[in-house]
Design a protein around this nucleic acid. Structure first.
Length: 188
DNA sequence: GAAAAGATTACCT
DNA sequence: GGTAATCTTTTCC
């Protein structure tokens, strides 16, 4: 599969749009985390949308101490802990977010970011990053896919690992990409 | 204050 | 394919 180069930095205007659309357009985007001289980056191949009035969403019952970042401005990072692992989301509109599920490694090339917890581990994201804003000057930056994935390669399927609203097709992934996590999505 | 559940992963058969 | 690990937040009594 072709490796993309890095496009323009995505900011508030990109994230302040309907969540499913942001999710779909994040496929192929490059995430970069800079810590001191260390640079790590991946290219997204799988995400999930969590919407308002969505029983599967952490924001469903309103703001709490844990999920308050989900109500921050567009482009806020929401990091939460599950079991021994952390997972990261990008907030779109208040109360809605895109879970970053899997990616193709870029730097380092041998990393394995296939899975929400592994993706965070590869990028070095921790709970301390919760609430940060992404941006070209920040620790975490996101750049537009280049080239854009072919629309016919974007798959929609049910989300993974949840127990409510299990049938909503809010998981977006790139068809046939080896880095998409399990279970493999079935084309619709 | 106690109990349950969880947007996962690694390792077992 | 099934299950244990492991621990914090949320929820319920």
């Amino acid at each position: 599969m072709a490796r993309s180069s890095s496009g323009r930095p995505l900011g508030r205007a990109f994230f302040d749009r309907p969540t499913t659309r942001v999710a779909r357009e994040l496929l192929g985007a490059v995430l970069t985390v800079r810590a001191g001289g260390d640079v790590r980056s991946v290219e997204l191949v799988e995400v999930e949308a969590y919407l308002a009035h969505d029983p599967a969403s952490h924001a469903y019952r309103g703001p709490t101490r844990r999920n308050r970042s989900m109500f921050g401005p567009p482009g806020t990072l929401y990091v939460f802990r599950i079991h021994q692992v952390v997972c990261a989301n990008l907030v779109t509109r208040p109360g809605e977010a895109v879970l970053l599920r899997a990616a193709r490694p870029r730097r380092p090339a041998h990393a394995n970011p296939s899975g929400p917890g592994r993706l965070c581990r590869v990028l070095g994201l921790t709970i301390a990053d919760d609430g940060q804003r992404v941006g070209p000057r920040g620790r975490l930056s996101v750049t537009a896919p280049r080239p854009r994935p072919r629309p016919d390669l974007v798959l929609r399927s049910p989300r993974v690992g949840i127990s409510r609203a299990v049938d909503r097709p809010l998981r977006f992934s790139l068809a046939g990409d080896r880095w998409v996590s399990r279970p493999r999505p079935r084309a619709t």
